[in-house]
Simulated scan of single mutants.
Amino acid sequence: MPNDRADAPRRVSLQRRGPLLVEGPVEVELEDGTVVSSDRFRVALCMCRRSRTYPWCDTSHRRSRPGP
């Protein structure tokens, strides 16, 4: 459920082998100081750096997983 109040804490969900899910809207400051933003109610941030749309996750991590 997205945050309805501006002063409410943001919820961040960790996934073992996937993206970092953050309730939005969000601004992300990259290493070079560039700021990117999203007004979506939830965003997936890439943690493996394989995404072509970094810092947003494009599920590239799925292709690198070993099979079951």
Rank of each mutant, 00 (worst) to 15 (best):
R42F: 11
A44Q: 14
F41P: 15
L20T: 07
V28Y: 01
S13Q: 14
G33M: 07
D7W: 06
F41I: 15
N3F: 03
G67C: 10
R40S: 15
V36N: 03
V22M: 01
D58P: 04
A6E: 12
G67M: 12
G67K: 15
R11D: 10
D7A: 11
R63G: 01
V12A: 06
R17A: 09
R50A: 14
G67L: 14
R10F: 08
C57F: 05
C57A: 04
S37Q: 13
T59Q: 00
S51T: 07
V12I: 15
C48K: 10
T34P: 03
A44V: 04
G18W: 03
P9C: 09
P2V: 08
L45T: 08
R50N: 11
P2T: 06
P68W: 11
G18C: 04
E29S: 04
R65L: 14
D4Q: 11
P9H: 06
V35S: 02
C48S: 07
L21T: 04
S38L: 07
V12F: 09
P9I: 05
P2W: 00
N3W: 00
S51H: 09
V43I: 12
F41H: 13
D58H: 05
P55G: 10
V12M: 10
Q15E: 12
S38Q: 09
R40T: 13
A6T: 08
L20I: 09
E23S: 10
R11A: 11
T53G: 06
R10G: 06
A44W: 09
